[in-house]
Nucleic acid binder design. Structure first.
Lengths: 111, 111
DNA sequence: GCGATGTGCAATCATCGTGTTGCAGAAATC
DNA sequence: GATTTCTGCAACACGATGATTGCACATCGC
C-alpha cells in the first residue's frame, strides 16, 4: 500500500461541497435528489461529487427501488487516518534522529 | 475546531507532486532549489507548492543564511489524522445505531 | 395508461490550479 | 568588487474541475 493510493482520497476530501455532502450522509443514507433539496447545488453536480467520493472509497451506492441511496464508509476514513498518523510519526522520528546526531555527534543513536 | 479548517490540509495532500516534496523533506530539511534538483519540476513550481503546504501547516520555513530551508511538521499530520478518525468513527456509530433501530424497533438503544 | 419523480448522459461555460519562462534583487564566494 | 547562487514576483499557457442547462429513459403511484 503506497501513498499513491490515498492521494485521490485526499483530493476528494479537499472540497467544501463534498464535505457538506459527507456530513449530510453522516446523518443517514440519502439519494442525490434528496441531497439536492438540502444543499445549494444541482442534483447533477451532487451526482458527480458522489462518483468522485465513490471512486475514493468514501461512499457506497445502495439501490432502493428506483432510487440510489448513498452510504458513508467511515471505516475507510479511519484506515486512511491511521496511515496518515504513521507517516507523520515516521517523519517526526527521522527528523528527531537527525537533530540528535547534529547536536551530539559522538553519541550516535543505537542501530 | 471545525471541518473547514482542515479542508485546505486535504487539498494540499491531494496532489502527487506535493507528496513527493513532502517525502523528500521527510528525509531532511531542504530548500526549493535543492528540491528542484531532485524532482522533475521547476524551482518556481516547487516554491508555489511550498507556500500551499505552509498555509496548510504541513511545512515550516527555516532561514539558513541566504537560503530558506523547509521542514515537515509531522505532528500536524498526526493531529489531522486524529480528527479524521474521530469523524469516521462518529459516522460509523450513528449509522450502526440507525441500522439497529431499523432491525429491532422494540429494542431501542440506551440514551 | 398517465403523470410525477428519480436517474443518467452530453454539451457548455467559468474558474482554478499547475507548470512554464523571464527578469530583478539579495547574499555568499572568489 | 565581480561573479555566482539563491530567492521573489509577474505574466502566460494549458489542462482539470465545479457547476450549470437540457434532454432521454426508467420506475413508482394513481
Amino acid at each position: 500500500m503506497t501513498v499513491a493510493t490515498l492521494v485521490p482520497v485526499f483530493a476528494a476530501l479537499g472540497d467544501e461541497t463534498r464535505w457538506s455532502i459527507l456530513t449530510a450522509l453522516g446523518e443517514g443514507e440519502a439519494s442525490a435528489s434528496a441531497l439536492a433539496g438540502r444543499l445549494p447545488v444541482t442534483r447533477q453536480a451532487i451526482a458527480r461529487h458522489l462518483t468522485v467520493l465513490q471512486e475514493a472509497g468514501l461512499v457506497e451506492p445502495v439501490r432502493a427501488g428506483r432510487e440510489v441511496r448513498y452510504r458513508v464508509l467511515g471505516a475507510h476514513l479511519s484506515s486512511t487516518a491511521r496511515q496518515l498518523d504513521r507517516i507523520g510519526a515516521a517523519w517526526e522520528r527521522r527528523l528527531a534522529a537527525i537533530k540528535a546526531i547534529a547536536e551530539h555527534p559522538d553519541h550516535p543513536e543505537q542501530p
